[in-house]
Computed example of a mutant assay.
Amino acid sequence: MEEQGSEVVLIGFWASTYCHRVELALNIKGIPYEFVEEDLSNKSDLLIQYNPVHKKVPVLVHKGKAIAESLVILEYIDDCWDNTPKLLPQDPHERAKIRFWANFYDQKVLLPSTYPIIYSEGEEREKTMAEFRELLRMFEEGIKKDFPTRKPFFNGEDLGFLDVTVAANSCMYRAFEEALALDYELNNYPAFLSWLNALKGCPVVKETLPPHDKLVAIIRKMFLKQT
């Protein structure tokens, strides 16, 4: 961090989808920020100071005050910078539905798409992959049912809260497939795949997310020796 200190600082890691969410929200809102790259193998005193509970990225530091956990940070950004486009709708029921599916994606879909699959083999991997596909089916059908007018994004042409939550991971599925010879069978989920492709084609997403080849390389470096 600069000696004078920036008003908004994001402590993160360039390959973290959780950090990408925060970057996307800041970029969508047009909020200037300083990005401080964290070495997750040798966590800095700065990270531990601002996130002493989990010691994880991302951490948003706004005027010296720290906010942790990506979904919490997204809501903070939307509340604190009350300019358009808004990430969450005003209607309480719509907000509740979006929060529900964002948490479902985080707690049920996102994690099963990485570590449980990567650290399993043979029949066990097939089982964990089948569980992931069923959860993805539930997510896809739930989104279609609860938000039938979403075209293509939750705010029309602008990304909303759930778009940002999913968009940050949109580049990772193909990267994990290529790096670790996985097959998520995303073609079997046409609505979800169409959404991912629309997200990846959105200019702010393309400008924010890292290149595919760079992701493939770091995934191989992190996981191949352990599989």
Results as ranks from 00 to 15, higher is better:
residue 148 P to I: 11
residue 40 L to K: 05
residue 48 I to E: 08
residue 135 L to G: 09
residue 115 Y to W: 07
residue 153 F to A: 11
residue 115 Y to Q: 13
residue 110 L to Q: 09
residue 54 H to V: 08
residue 64 G to H: 07
residue 121 E to R: 14
residue 116 P to E: 14
residue 88 L to C: 09
residue 117 I to N: 04
residue 133 R to E: 12
residue 144 K to L: 12
residue 108 K to C: 10
residue 49 Q to W: 00
residue 40 L to H: 03
residue 133 R to V: 05
residue 72 V to Q: 00
residue 42 N to H: 10
residue 123 E to D: 15
residue 84 T to R: 09
residue 33 Y to G: 06
residue 153 F to Q: 13
residue 92 P to H: 05
residue 46 L to Q: 11
residue 57 V to Y: 02
residue 169 N to P: 10
residue 154 F to S: 04
residue 167 A to V: 15
residue 129 M to T: 13
residue 147 F to I: 06
residue 145 K to H: 11
residue 178 E to K: 14
residue 144 K to P: 08
residue 79 D to Y: 07
residue 93 H to V: 06
residue 65 K to D: 00
residue 53 V to P: 08
residue 35 F to H: 03
residue 55 K to T: 04
residue 146 D to T: 13
residue 63 K to D: 05
residue 146 D to M: 06
residue 35 F to W: 09
residue 39 D to W: 03
residue 100 F to L: 09
residue 174 R to I: 14
residue 56 K to P: 02
residue 53 V to R: 13
residue 151 K to D: 14
residue 45 D to N: 08
residue 154 F to K: 05
residue 120 S to D: 14
residue 43 K to S: 08
residue 113 S to A: 15
residue 122 G to Q: 05
residue 137 R to Q: 15
residue 66 A to W: 01
residue 112 P to I: 14
residue 101 W to E: 00
residue 153 F to T: 10
residue 80 C to R: 08
residue 35 F to Q: 07
residue 74 L to C: 08
residue 108 K to Y: 09
residue 55 K to H: 06
residue 58 P to F: 04
residue 137 R to G: 01
residue 155 N to D: 08
residue 91 D to I: 02
residue 61 V to F: 02
residue 61 V to E: 00
residue 171 C to N: 15
residue 109 V to Q: 03
residue 166 V to A: 00
residue 142 G to T: 07
residue 128 T to Y: 15
residue 78 D to M: 06
residue 120 S to N: 15
residue 62 H to T: 10
residue 112 P to H: 09
residue 71 L to Y: 04
residue 147 F to Q: 08
residue 161 F to I: 09
residue 166 V to I: 15
residue 140 E to H: 13
residue 93 H to T: 03
residue 82 D to R: 02
residue 155 N to R: 13
residue 90 Q to R: 07
residue 111 L to H: 09
residue 126 E to P: 02
residue 119 Y to N: 14
residue 161 F to C: 06
residue 36 V to H: 09
residue 158 D to I: 01
residue 79 D to K: 14
residue 177 E to Q: 04
residue 73 I to V: 06
residue 166 V to N: 04
residue 160 G to C: 02
residue 127 K to W: 02
residue 81 W to K: 03
residue 168 A to M: 12
residue 121 E to L: 03
residue 92 P to K: 12
residue 177 E to M: 14
residue 156 G to H: 11
residue 53 V to K: 15
residue 156 G to C: 11
residue 60 L to Q: 13
residue 100 F to Q: 13
residue 130 A to E: 15
residue 108 K to W: 01
residue 50 Y to S: 07
residue 82 D to P: 04
residue 142 G to Y: 02
residue 175 A to Y: 11
residue 96 A to Q: 08
residue 134 E to F: 06
residue 139 F to G: 03
residue 67 I to P: 03
residue 45 D to I: 00
residue 156 G to K: 08
residue 87 L to S: 05
residue 81 W to Y: 09
residue 104 F to T: 10
residue 39 D to A: 13
residue 52 P to C: 07
residue 139 F to T: 04
residue 160 G to M: 01
residue 33 Y to A: 03
residue 69 E to S: 01
residue 78 D to F: 01
residue 63 K to P: 00
residue 96 A to R: 10
residue 139 F to L: 15
residue 137 R to Y: 11
residue 118 I to N: 05
residue 55 K to Y: 01
residue 145 K to D: 09
residue 86 K to L: 11
residue 36 V to K: 14
residue 95 R to N: 10
residue 171 C to E: 14
residue 122 G to E: 05
residue 68 A to Y: 05
residue 84 T to M: 05
residue 76 Y to K: 11
residue 94 E to H: 01
residue 67 I to Y: 05
